[in-house]
Design a protein around this nucleic acid. Sequence first.
DNA 1: AATTTGACAATACGATCGCATAGTGAAACG
DNA 2: CGTTTCACTATGCGATCGTATTGTCAAATT
Lengths: 209, 209
Amino acid sequence: MTNSLNRRALRREETREKILRAAVRIFAELGFEAASMGSIAARADLKKALVQYHFETKLNLWQEAVNFLWSELHTLEDGLPRLSDFSSHDDEREILRQVLRAIIRFAKSHPDWVGIMFREASSPGPRLDWLVENHLKRDIEDGTAFIATAQSHGLLPEGPPLQILNIISGALTYPLLVAPLTKRATGINMASDESLDATVDILLNMLKP
Amino acid sequence: MTNSLNRRALRREETREKILRAAVRIFAELGFEAASMGSIAARADLKKALVQYHFETKLNLWQEAVNFLWSELHTLEDGLPRLSDFSSHDDEREILRQVLRAIIRFAKSHPDWVGIMFREASSPGPRLDWLVENHLKRDIEDGTAFIATAQSHGLLPEGPPLQILNIISGALTYPLLVAPLTKRATGINMASDESLDATVDILLNMLKP
DNA sequence: AATTTGACAATACGATCGCATAGTGAAACG
DNA sequence: CGTTTCACTATGCGATCGTATTGTCAAATT
C-alpha cells in the first residue's frame, strides 16, 4: 500500500463521514420522512447526487447514520465505571451518580441521539424494527442488567428493572429534550451543565433508600 | 333561527371536526413537515381540496388541530382533584397519586397529545413559539404551581419546581412514549393499565420522604 | 319562485421529493 | 506513459407536495 493509494480512500472516507454527520443532525431534527437528501447534502455543503452516490437510498443512509451515531455511543460506554469495580457502599452510590451524569452528558452533547431515539421509538414501523434488532435490544438488555445489579446492591428501589430503567431514562432525557420549550417559556436553560447536574442530584436523592 | 338554518351549519361543524380529528392523528404520527394535506384528507375520508377549503393553509390547520386537542385536555383538568380539597396528610398523598394517574391515563388515551408535544417541543421554531404562547406557558405555570404546593405540603422533595416538574413529566410519559419500542424489544406492553399504574406507584414510592 | 349563498369537487400550477443515467477528470495502476 | 478506476457532477424522470382557481349543486334567503 503506497502513499498515493490512500489519497483517494482517505478522501472517500472524509466525504462519507461528512455526509453521515450531516445526516445524523438532519434526521434527528426533522425525522426520517421530513428529512430530504437535498437538505442533508446542503448541510454537508455537498451536491445531492454525491450523497446518493455514496449511500444509494435514503433508508440506507439513515441506517448508516444510525450506526455511525451508535458507534460514538459505544465509545462512551467503554469509559463508564462499573459497579463491580468498587466495594464500599459509599463508593457504589458515587458510581451510580457518575453513570447517570455520564448518560445525561452524552445525551446533551449528542442531541441527535435523543432526537432519533424519540422520533423512531414512538411509532411502530420497519425502521423501529431495524433499530431494535441492531441496537436497542442490546441497549435495553445492558440497561436492565445494570439496574438489576444496582438493585441487588441496595442502590435502587425494588420493582421490575425494565420499568425502573424507563422511569430513570425518562427523568433524565425529558428535561433535555424539552429544553428548547422550557427556554422559550421561562427563559431558563435546562440544558446547562449546572441544571443537568442538579437534575441528576435531585433524581438520585429520590432514589435513595 | 329556524331548523333548516342549522342544517348547513351543523354539517359544516361535523366536517370540520372530522378533519380536525384526522389532522391531530396524522400530525402526531408524522410530525408537521411529513404530514400532508392529502394524507389528512384520506384519513378523514374526504377530498384534499375540502380540507384546504375549511382551513386554508397547512399551518392554520395545525394550529386549529392543536387548539382542538388542548380543549380536550382542559376538560380533563377540570375533573382533577385539588390538594386544597383535603386536609389530612394521608389524603393528600392519595390525591397526588390520583393526579399522576389521571395524567398518565390521559396521555395513554391521547397518544396524539404526547406525539405532538414531543415532536414540537424538542426543536425551536415558529410552531414551538406559537405553542408556548398559546398553551404551554400556561400549562407550565399551572404545573410548577402544583409542584410547589405539593412541596409545601411535604409531598415532594425539595428543589426547583420546574426541575421536579420535568423529572416527573419525563418519568411518566417516557415509558408510554417508548411503549412501541419496549413491546418490540421485549414483548412486554408497557402501555397496559397495570403497567402504567405500576409506574405511578414506583415513582410515588421514590418521591416519598 | 327567483336569486344568492356556501359546502364541496375538479383541475392545474410550480416546487421539491427520491432516484436513475450519462458523463468528466484526476488519481491509481500495469 | 497509456489505460483503467472511481469520486464526483449534470441533468432529468415521475411522483407528490402545498396552494390557487374555477365550477357545481343543493340549501338558505328574499
